[in-house]
Design a protein around this nucleic acid. Structure first.
Length: 661
DNA sequence: CTAATACCTG
DNA sequence: CAGGTATTAG
């Protein structure tokens, strides 16, 4: 069991077994989903980007935790605080960014310094301390060290399973579904569809790991505050009241909750311990008016930074992995998450168990995960790109409104979060608890709006710039009810869900037709993610499905017609049948799906149409049309050729804009 | 039973 | 396109 978990799987092998029933759920390969996300984003060299859990980042933390001085005050209730309720402080630390940078500098360099044993007079308890320290260290290692660091690079799930097994006793038999050999079909190999259930399982595992991580954070938090507590007490007893008020006092908010945190009466040794861990000399510390609190603050900041950095990494990785299925449920969840009451938040954190996933498994195409033949340009950036395979609006179209625009305020909701409550809380913590610096940018510059940095990560910069423009031109109608005080409103307003349409509009139809250029066989889940402004019901879903069915019908009829025509014209080689933008077939199709011709059909669609034409041609020439179900094989082939739909199609208001163009 | 599809019809 | 039906798969 355990050895199996150590198996390192490649990023590509992360894609799960899948069912190809030739009917539904033809999803695309998203093998790249988990790899290499953090690299470019994490400008902070302080953290390693290839590791998920604090393993490689825990030097300060682990030293802190394993220090004999702190070990003295540890007990099992702290290491395993499942029965306690200690809130994660959401304090916005008041320290200036400069202090933060300072804090970064030294604890790291001193982290590997040899650790002195317990202080002078404590010979009696030395043995006891060592034992405790060893125990603590082993526990901490068990908590923070992944089996193999590489596992996190390559297979989040493998690492996940491992963590889950360590934590709870989940029988291993469910962990691996037997791999279903892919049904080889001529064109296959390029696309590896994804099963919804397996993907959901992956997400579930990710979520479990997040919960686990969250517990870790909480434990560290507790330890820190315990030390802080003692130090604080020591300080107040030692020094007179001349101490200037500290910019932050995280303890304050814990006073009510942390009944379990015991005040450690030992003063000087503890003080030295803190200084050691922080890398401060005692005398140098005395020069500081703040004295010990400075050290504590430094420690606090260093710890927070480490925690936040690790958290950011995890969130990044997880979100990247979860992204494909996330967007559909995001609007509501993000909304609800943002208005989550503080007590609700805490309840979530201290609630021991992870909540069940709110969302059903909803696999969909991972953006940009398909092969090079995929269209990758988002419609939002729809400059005319000659020779591009991507679809875009032609310059003939009405420029001002024909761009599938308005992803402005839609991108916020499209934040890739699956169980966004937990994730966003982690995000929240990671960003807000940082005093000025973030592993990937300044929160203040982003106005502490969680979705924004995410949209930066998962979207394109180009897209983002157009977003700003669009937002300027399309001020979002803000109802007073949705208004919130303070600058937060500026963040939340982009999260305000647009009013849901209860029925499909002509704009939606037009959008669906354009989407047909990318996908002929969209699953209902995919549709849900691209019609975010539609209140889905069975009826709506069926109607959308029906639309695409009708689209296909027309498409196949046209192709068949031209295939037979080519046969009559005496075309010898099927390979000579290529659909270009000049061909009659294309004109017929374009007339149907892109009537205003304000959208530049992606080249990929021409490839698909060409292949369809050739398949029909070959089949008819071979006389297969005698078989009543002779089209089925062709359908199956074509069904695997769906492309990723550009993200811009998700934009709220996209449908309306299309209608006007 | 439900969902999705192809096929047919208007 | 929408309605209806038959079929198939889960």
């Amino acid at each position: 069991m355990i050895p199996n978990q150590l198996k390192v799987s490649s990023p590509v092998s992360r894609q799960e077994e899948d069912k190809m029933d030739g009917r539904t759920g033809f999803e695309q390969d998203r093998g790249h989903a988990t790899s290499g996300h953090g690299q470019g984003l994490n400008s902070e060299p302080y953290f390693q980007t290839d590791s998920l859990l604090p393993s490689s980042n825990a030097s300060l933390i682990s030293q802190f935790l394993s220090h004999p001085m702190f070990g003295r005050s540890l007990d099992s209730t702290i290491l395993f605080p499942s029965s306690q309720a200690v809130a994660l402080p959401q304090d916005k630390c008041g320290a200036s960014p400069g202090e933060g940078a300072q804090a970064l500098a030294f604890p790291r360099t001193r982290a590997s310094a040899p650790m002195p044993c317990a202080s002078d007079g404590d010979q009696l308890s030395n043995q006891h301390l060592r034992a405790k320290r060893a125990r603590v260290e082993s526990i901490i290692q068990g908590i923070s060290l992944p089996p193999t660091p590489q596992a996190f690079d390559t297979s989040l799930e493998a690492a996940f399973r491992h963590e889950r097994e360590r934590g709870s006793e989940i029988p291993p038999e469910n962990k691996r579904k037997p791999r279903v050999p892919p049904q080889g079909l001529g064109v296959a190999g390029r696309v590896a569809p994804m099963g919804g259930s397996s993907h959901a399982k992956g997400c579930q595992q990710l979520k479990e790991q997040l919960c686990f991580l969250e517990q870790q954070l909480r434990r560290l938090q507790e330890k820190f505050y315990q030390v802080y507590d003692s130090a604080d007490a020591a300080q107040t007893q030692e020094d007179s009241e001349k101490v200037q008020p500290l910019p932050e006092r995280p303890r304050d908010r814990l006073d009510k909750d942390s009944a379990t945190v015991t005040r450690n009466p030992c003063k000087a040794p503890l003080r030295r311990s803190i200084l050691e861990v922080c890398g401060l000399e005692e005398d140098e510390d005395k020069c500081d008016a703040g004295g010990l609190p400075t050290a504590v603050r430094v420690l606090s900041q260093a710890l927070k930074h480490e925690l936040a950095g690790v958290t950011s990494q995890v969130v990044d990785s997880v979100l990247k992995t979860v992204w494909p299925k996330a967007a559909s449920h995001l609007q509501q969840q993000h909304n609800s998450c943002l208005v989550l009451r503080p007590d609700a938040r805490r309840e979530y954190f201290t609630g021991g168990k992870c909540r069940k996933p709110l969302a059903e498994p909803s696999p969909m195409n991972a953006p940009g995960s398909l092969g090079s033949a995929q269209a990758k340009v988002l419609p939002g950036t729809l400059e005319k790109s000659p020779g591009s395979h991507a679809g875009s609006f032609s310059s003939k179209g009405i420029r001002k409104s024909s761009q599938i625009p308005s992803m402005g305020y839609s991108l916020g909701p499209v934040t890739p979060v699956q169980d966004s409550q937990l994730l966003s809380q982690l995000l929240d913590y990671g960003q807000h608890s940082l005093w000025g610096t973030d592993s990937r940018g300044s929160p203040s510059a982003l106005e502490r709006c969680p979705p924004e940095p995410l949209s930066l990560h998962w979207g394109t910069v180009k897209l983002r710039s157009s977003v700003v423009r669009q937002q300027q031109h399309h001020p979002l109608p803000l109802s007073p009810a949705n208004m919130e005080t303070g600058g937060a409103a500026a963040c939340r307003f982009s999260l305000t869900p647009r009013q849901m349409q209860e029925a499909l509009t002509p704009g939606h139809l037009k959008k669906a037709k354009l989407m047909f250029f990318f996908t002929r066989y969209p699953s209902s889940t995919l549709l849900k993610t691209y019609f975010l402004d539609v209140q889905f019901s069975r009826c709506i879903t069926s109607q959308l499905i029906k639309w695409f069915s009708n689209f296909r019908e027309f498409y196949y009829i046209q192709v068949e017609k031209f295939a037979r025509q080519a046969l009559l014209e005496g075309v010898a080689d099927a390979c000579t049948l290529q659909v270009s933008r000049d061909s009659e077939l294309f004109r017929a199709l374009n007339m149907h799906y892109n009537k205003g011709n304000d959208f530049e059909v992606p080249g990929r669609f021409l490839e698909v149409a060409s292949l369809t034409l050739q398949e029909f041609f070959s089949a008819v020439r071979a006389g297969k049309d005698a078989d009543p179900s002779w089209k089925k094989p062709i359908y199956k082939i074509i069904s695997k050729l769906d492309s990723d739909i550009p993200e811009g199609f998700k934009a709220a208001g996209c449908s309306q804009e299309l209608l006007r163009s």
